[in-house]
Simulated scan of single mutants.
Amino acid sequence: MWTLQDAKNRFSSLVDAAMAGQPQEVTRRGKPAVVIVSAAEYDRLLAEAGGHRGRFADHILAFPGDAIERAEARPRDVEF
């Protein structure tokens, strides 16, 4: 884990480690801020994430809207 200042000062080392397949965590003010990964790992993660998701429109169209029974709710009386 790198502090932000150390990551700035030794950026080449950080990039070398990430390219060697070791994700590098960087903190800011003691809290996790970012993770540096190689471009190949980033591309793999994107491809993996996209493969499991369908289109949002297909998800909405598959919703079984007719199968849900709606409650018989009456509005309450309001006086002005």
Rank of each mutant, 00 (worst) to 15 (best):
M1V: 12
W2K: 02
T3A: 01
Q5S: 11
Q5Y: 07
A7H: 02
A7C: 11
N9A: 08
N9L: 06
R10L: 11
F11S: 10
S13M: 09
A18D: 02
A18K: 03
A18S: 04
M19R: 13
A20G: 04
A20K: 03
G21W: 01
Q22N: 08
Q22S: 12
P23N: 06
E25H: 03
E25S: 08
E25Y: 03
E25Q: 08
R28Q: 10
R28K: 11
R28F: 06
G30D: 03
G30R: 03
G30V: 01
K31R: 11
K31Y: 06
P32G: 07
V34N: 01
V37H: 02
S38N: 07
A39D: 13
E41L: 04
E41A: 08
Y42K: 14
Y42M: 12
L45Y: 05
L46D: 03
A47M: 06
A47G: 11
E48R: 07
A49H: 05
A49L: 04
A49Y: 13
G50V: 02
G50W: 10
G51V: 00
H52M: 13
G54S: 11
G54W: 00
F56T: 06
A57G: 06
A57S: 15
D58E: 12
H59F: 09
I60H: 03
I60M: 14
I60P: 04
I60F: 08
L61R: 04
A62E: 14
A62R: 13
A62I: 04
A62S: 15
F63Q: 08
F63T: 00
F63R: 06
P64F: 02
P64C: 05
P64W: 00
P64E: 03
G65P: 03
A67L: 15
A67N: 06
I68P: 04
R70F: 10
A71E: 13
A71G: 08
A71D: 11
E72H: 14
E72C: 08
A73L: 15
R74A: 08
P75E: 15
R76H: 00
R76D: 06
R76K: 05
D77W: 09
V78D: 07
E79N: 12
E79V: 07
F80E: 14
F80Q: 11
